Lab assay of single mutants.
Amino acid sequence: TYYTVKSGDTLNKIAAQYGVSVANLRSWNGISGDLIFVGQKLIVKKG
């Protein structure tokens, strides 16, 4: 599943929405910090 980042989104918010961990979101998307951008597509695997 792909999720497109919207204004106001955070990794924590997206992780909670999908029932996954922030660590997994980072791993699946090659993100090291907490910086995400509006319009960015993130890979999300269902929890």
Rank of each mutant, 00 (worst) to 15 (best):
V38H: 07
V44M: 06
F37Y: 12
Y18F: 14
T1L: 13
Y3G: 01
K13H: 11
T10W: 03
F37L: 10
T10R: 05
S32H: 15
G47W: 12
I36Q: 02
S32F: 11
F37A: 09
S32C: 08
T4G: 03
W28A: 04
N29H: 01
I36G: 02
R26P: 00
V5L: 03
V22I: 12
N12S: 14
K6H: 08
N24D: 15
G19C: 09
L11N: 00
Y2W: 14
D9H: 01
K45C: 06
V5M: 03
T1S: 11
V44N: 01
V20R: 02
L25M: 06
S27W: 11
S21K: 07
F37T: 11
D34V: 07
W28M: 07
S21L: 07
A16D: 13
L11W: 05
V44R: 01
Y18M: 11
Y18R: 04
K45M: 14
G39D: 07
G33A: 09
G33I: 06
N29S: 03
G39S: 05
Q17N: 11
R26S: 07
D34A: 07
V5I: 08
Q40M: 12
Y2R: 06
S21V: 05
A16R: 11
Y18W: 14
N12L: 15
D34Y: 10
V5H: 00
T1V: 14
K41W: 09
S27V: 11
G47Y: 14
R26E: 06
S21M: 06
W28G: 02
W28I: 05
V44G: 01
S21A: 08
D9W: 01
S21T: 14
D34P: 05
A23E: 12
A15L: 02
V38Q: 08
Y3C: 04
K45H: 15
V20Y: 03
G30Q: 11
G39Q: 04
S32E: 12
T4L: 07
Y18D: 01
A15K: 02
V38N: 07
D34T: 08
N24F: 08
D9N: 02
K41S: 12
V44T: 06
Y2C: 08
A23R: 08
L25F: 02
L35A: 11
F37R: 09
N29D: 00
T4C: 07
S27C: 13
G47V: 15
L42A: 01
S21E: 09
Y3Q: 02
Q40N: 05
A16N: 12
T10I: 04
K41H: 11
G8S: 06
V44A: 04
S7Y: 13
K46H: 15
D9S: 02
K6G: 09
V5N: 01
N12A: 13
V20S: 06
K13G: 14
K41G: 06
T1K: 09
A15G: 08
W28K: 02
K13L: 13
G33R: 07
Y3T: 04
K45Y: 15
N24G: 07
A15N: 01
K41T: 14
R26C: 07
A15V: 03
V44F: 05
K6W: 03
A23S: 11
T1N: 11
L11T: 03
I14T: 01
Y2G: 05
G19V: 06
Y18S: 06
S21R: 05
D9M: 03
G33K: 08
